[in-house]
Design a protein around this nucleic acid. Structure first.
Length: 220
DNA sequence: CACCAGGCAAGTA
DNA sequence: TACTTGCATGGT
């Protein structure tokens, strides 16, 4: 399919989702650091569970790099328990904190001033941060225009015949980033709208999206 | 009861 | 490289 057609298709899908659901105002976090923590905690986990973990951290005023760094592994794990996988996630958060300290002297501001592509590579070197988490941090915490791909995105692209079954993460990300402009607000809302669609209609149990806002784009 | 959620790393062959 | 498994809570 020609690139121009892909552009039209992706923008049409975006417009349909935006008309159906409106702006999502992601990420639901008050500071870049809170967004980073949430990005790790939400891995394969319902956001409602992450909210409970974040609330625990907030209640103890621990949502800063320096304060969270002072916690033992066990104490941190206990605090984030509702988000699931709490032992591994506590370790992953500690890895992230060490990373922030070592590369940016604990300054989120310095981290956000880093070049996007460089920051992405550095984040991927942190154990516990994969491609989706790295891109979520880049886009929603650091304000870099990197498109976030997730399980819903794969289902939608596959269902709409825009990718083959074996497409990997970078292929799907390139599909978006080469076809539509690197606009921060657009990337922000687009991924959020895809997640919204997934929650509403396109779960595994209902892969055909009957009645969903994208129905008219589906191949006959 | 079964299934799922805004993944990822580590182990195996 | 490609495939499998462990990680865990809380909602439907």
């Amino acid at each position: 399919m020609p690139k121009k057609d892909i552009t039209m298709r992706l923008l049409s899908i975006y417009n349909a989702l935006y008309r159906a659901y409106g702006p999502q105002h992601w990420w639901p976090g008050e500071t870049p650091f809170e967004v980073m923590v949430g990005a790790v905690l939400t891995q394969n986990t319902a956001w409602s569970n992450v909210e409970k973990a974040i609330a625990n951290l907030k209640k103890h005023r621990l949502l800063t790099p320096s304060r969270m760094s002072s916690l033992t592994l066990g104490r941190l794990a206990t605090l984030i328990r509702p988000s699931g996988y709490y032992n591994v996630k506590a370790k992953h958060l500690q890895n992230l904190l060490v990373f922030i300290q070592d590369h940016y002297r604990g300054s989120i501001k310095k981290l956000c001033a880093e070049d996007g592509a460089v920051l992405r590579q550095k984040l991927l070197n942190v154990s516990g941060i994969g491609e989706e988490t790295a891109d979520s941090i880049l886009l929603y915490a650091a304000g870099k225009p990197f498109f976030v791909v997730d399980a819903y995105t794969r289902r939608i692209l596959s269902r709409h015949g825009l990718i083959t079954q074996d497409a990997d993460y970078l292929q799907m990300q390139r599909l978006f980033m080469e076809a539509i402009p690197a606009d921060l607000l657009l990337y922000n809302e687009y991924h959020a709208l895809i997640v919204k669609l997934g929650k509403e209609l396109c779960r595994k149990s209902r892969p055909l999206c009957s009645g969903c806002p994208l129905e008219r784009f589906l191949p006959v």
